[in-house]
């Protein structure tokens, strides 16, 4: 049966890493951004569309990419889908930021 990348119930897994990882400030910013974008004031997109976007990861990307990294990439995709931002302006801004930071 065709299985989506996120549909992992019953698959073989390893010992669970129980280490506490308090969210970093960076992760909290992404979390906050998502809450606000999917919240009643902005309603940019739904949490369901975020999940759908994450499910579009390849199996390799799904396992390699971090949890919040997947969120961030999905948020980008959905902002573009909803025509709130364009890929061009995002890429332009990234380049600008890199230059600002001396990269």
């Amino acid at each position: 049966m065709q299985r989506k990348v996120n549909d992992v119930g019953g698959l073989t897994g390893s010992q669970i890493d129980q280490a506490e990882h308090d969210p970093t400030f960076y992760e909290k910013r992404i979390d906050a951004l998502l809450m606000l974008l999917t919240g009643p004031k902005v309603q940019a997109f739904t949490v369901d569309s975020l999940r759908r976007a994450i499910e579009q990861n390849t199996p390799e990307d799904y396992s390699k990419r971090g949890y919040y990294e997947k969120w961030l990439l999905a948020i980008r995709q959905l902002l573009v889908e909803q025509q709130i931002l364009s890929n061009e302006e995002i890429d332009r801004r990234i380049e600008e930021i890199k230059q600002r930071k001396g990269h």
Binding site: Y26, L85, I97
Partner: peptide
């Protein structure tokens, strides 16, 4: 990784367009 530039870019653009402001993010945190 590169993702930190993306996070900053999205935050800046959304703030400039008034979609989600820096103050709102801080409050939500």
């Amino acid at each position: 990784g590169e993702e930190r530039f993306l996070e900053q870019a999205l935050r800046e653009l959304l703030d400039e367009k008034g979609v989600v402001t820096a103050a709102q993010i801080a409050q939500q945190i």
